[in-house]
Design a protein around this nucleic acid. Structure first.
Length: 274
DNA sequence: CCTTGAACCTGCGGGC
DNA sequence: TGCCCGCAGGTTCAAG
């Protein structure tokens, strides 16, 4: 489900509900996610003050006062909700945490590609989840010079290259397609063939697209919602994603779809020549 | 090292 | 109505 803007939105809507509070009762209903959820997760986090919510790549980080961090990834279909206490739990509610403020935070993930884990704050950077990650796309570290240099000699299609979290984090299938369209780059162009100017424009368009999507509360294609159960609305701004056979907004040519590395890529062959 | 393809899961919508 | 197919915001691992 979520790329960077969706995870960022989840973090921002979760924060005011749990910051400075404590989990007082935890139920782990199904630990069989992408990686097994540690059996002692509940014991590790119960009754500890939550002092910070953060995001790194597509992970949400919940910091506790004693230096412990809970890490949540949402895979393709993960979400957080805060159902009222009289509402029944849903089929794929895997982790339920009651707070001392009366709220109940629920992690739900139908496809179970997500993960929940914990570690010490000081071990975060060296953990296998994080150690190979590239820079944050909205940081200064991700600039045209970086992208140009790291892409030299790489023959991988630029679409797959930019979705590689080792190159830059947070950019998934939607925002890769959208940023490529804005930069008039065909998704199959070899990464190493991009000019300096194209790198400059592509980096700028990635940042602009992500920022706009964050402001819109992310994109809701089928069922993505933030922790207030609200849809995002960036999907109304899509130029190419999901628009196969529909006219390009720029030239009216039908948008095309190809499969790259098992993922659908949408583009306009006229505006994004190979 | 780099690249590709398959695997992990459930659910939904379209076509017949 | 029901079944089968293809498709879905991600990551990781094996094999070439």
């Amino acid at each position: 489900m979520p790329e960077l803007p969706e995870v960022e939105t989840i973090c921002r809507t979760v924060e005011p509900k749990i910051l400075n509070s404590r989990f007082v009762k935890i139920e782990q209903r199904n630990n069989n996610l992408r990686n097994p959820v540690p059996e002692d997760l509940g014991a590790k986090i119960i009754n500890k003050e939550i002092i910070k919510i953060d995001r790194r790549a597509k992970y949400m980080l919940v910091y506790f006062a004693d230096g412990l961090v809970m890490i949540m990834h949402f895979g393709m279909s993960g979400k957080i909700t805060f159902p009222n206490s009289d509402e029944q739990l849903q089929k794929h509610d895997h982790f339920i945490a009651e707070l001392d403020n009366g709220l109940r935070m629920v992690y739900n993930d139908a496809r179970r590609f997500g993960s929940i884990n914990y570690m010490q704050d000081r071990d975060l950077a060296s953990h296998k989840y994080f150690v190979y990650l590239g820079p944050e796309p909205l940081s200064k570290k991700f600039d045209a010079k970086y992208l140009y240099e790291i892409s030299r000699k790489r023959v991988m299609p630029i679409k797959n290259f930019i979705m590689d979290q080792k190159i830059v984090v947070g950019v998934g299938n939607i925002y890769a397609a959208e940023a490529l369209f804005l930069t008039s780059i065909h998704p199959a162009v070899q990464a190493g063939k991009l000019s300096k100017k194209q790198c400059e424009e592509f980096v700028r368009n990635i940042k602009v697209t992500l920022e706009k999507a964050i402001i819109a509360g992310g994109s809701s294609i089928s069922d993505y919602v933030n922790s207030d159960n609200e849809s995002g609305y960036f999907q109304h701004e899509f130029q190419v994603y999901g628009r196969e056979n529909k006219p390009c907004y720029r030239c009216a040519n039908p948008i095309e779809r190809i499969t790259q590395a098992g993922r659908s890529s949408f583009y306009c062959s006229k505006c994004q020549p190979l």
